[in-house]
Write a protein that binds this DNA or RNA. Structure first.
Length: 151
DNA sequence: GGTCAGATATAGC
DNA sequence: GCTATATCTGACC
């Protein structure tokens, strides 16, 4: 059984997350679409963690989550490296590519991050292009908002 | 400013 | 199944 809950960040930004009965996050998004058909079950534990991040601007606590097993090793590596980026820091697509021994696979890195099932928890917004802000699924303004939040 | 490289997914044949 | 095309890019021409 899966449930979801949400955090209202501001008037036009809401963070939705889905968790299972083992209290592990399985999916998150800034779009309402991923939670359609699911039952909302408020969860004080996760709620508190996300509130601390969004409103007190503190690093996200360790959160238990499950990555879909449909991800390839390459994608898992990308997400793992991304997760190592500290609060307030940024990295480039190239740096991630180099860390997973694929220095020329920077474009593939972008692709993997674009499919990131757990935005914020896996801080894909901290990955920027060397030529500009890069992109962000759902809107670049969300990325800018998150970076500003951490600055 | 165009092109190609790298991993993957999806669409079309 | 294979080819073409599209991605949150970067390097080299």
């Amino acid at each position: 059984m899966k449930f979801y809950d949400l955090i209202t960040v501001n008037s036009n930004l809401t963070y939705y997350y889905i968790y299972n009965d083992e209290l592990k996050i399985v999916r998150a998004s800034f779009s309402k679409k991923i939670v359609e058909g699911l039952k909302r079950e408020e969860n004080p534990h996760f709620n508190e963690i996300f509130k601390t991040y969004f409103f007190k601007r503190k690093p996200l606590s360790e959160i238990e989550y499950i990555l879909p097993d449909t991800l390839t090793d390459f994608e898992k590596s990308v997400l793992e490296e991304t997760k190592k980026i500290k609060f307030g820091k940024t990295a480039t697509y190239k740096e991630i590519a180099e860390r997973i021994k694929r220095p020329k696979a920077c474009r593939a890195v972008g692709n993997a991050l674009g499919k990131n099932p757990l935005p914020v928890i896996i801080p894909c917004h901290r990955i920027v292009s060397s030529t500009g802000p890069g992109g962000f699924t759902g809107g670049i303004w969300i990325k800018k908002f998150l970076l500003k939040l951490e600055s």
